[in-house]
Amino acid sequence: MKISRQSSLPVSLWLSLATTPFVLGMLAFRSLTQSLIELGQASEEVFRGDRLPILNFPEPDDRSIDN
């Protein structure tokens, strides 16, 4: 005795319903990846040497070295 369970919706409909979230997820992942790459490049620009301020260090006092 074989019991066949047939779903009420055809397989092609299930496949089409599953495709939309998958494609949207891939687009979101691509967008997130591109945003993170751009954020990394922008943060590199902040830490470049020519963009940092010049720090003036005071000369050491000869008297403070002797003490």
Score class of each variant (00 low, 15 high):
Ile37Ser: 07
Asp62Met: 14
Pro58Ser: 07
Leu39Asp: 04
Leu32Ile: 07
Pro53Phe: 03
Ser12Lys: 08
Ala28Pro: 01
Thr19Asp: 07
Glu59Phe: 09
Asn56Gln: 12
Leu24Pro: 00
Ser4Gln: 12
Val46Glu: 04
Ile54His: 06
Phe47Gly: 02
Met1Arg: 10
Leu9Tyr: 07
Arg5Gln: 09
Leu27Lys: 06
Arg63Val: 11
Glu38Asn: 14
Trp14Val: 04
Glu44Lys: 05
Asn56Phe: 05
Ser43Ala: 08
Leu13Trp: 06
Leu36Met: 13
Ala18Asn: 08
Trp14His: 10
Val11His: 06
Pro21Cys: 03
Val46Ala: 02
Arg51Asn: 14
Ser12Met: 09
Asp50Met: 06
Met1His: 12
Pro21Arg: 03
Pro10Ile: 00
Thr33Lys: 11
Arg30Gln: 15
Asp66Arg: 11
Ile37Pro: 00
Glu38Leu: 14
Pro58Glu: 04
Asn67Ile: 13
Met26Phe: 09
Phe47Ala: 04
Asp50Val: 02
Gln6Arg: 11
Arg48Ser: 01
Ser35Gln: 15
Ile3Glu: 13
Ser64Gly: 00
Gln6Val: 14
Gln34Cys: 05
Leu13Gln: 10
Leu52Met: 14
Arg63His: 11
Asp62His: 09
Pro60Ile: 07
Ala28Trp: 14
Ile65Asp: 02
Ser4Pro: 01
Gly25Trp: 06
Leu13Val: 14
Arg63Phe: 14
Pro53Lys: 02
Ala42Ser: 12
Pro60Asp: 01
Leu36Ala: 05
Gly40Val: 00
Asp62Ala: 14
Pro58Ile: 01
Arg63Thr: 12
Ser12Tyr: 10
Glu59Lys: 08
Ile54Met: 06
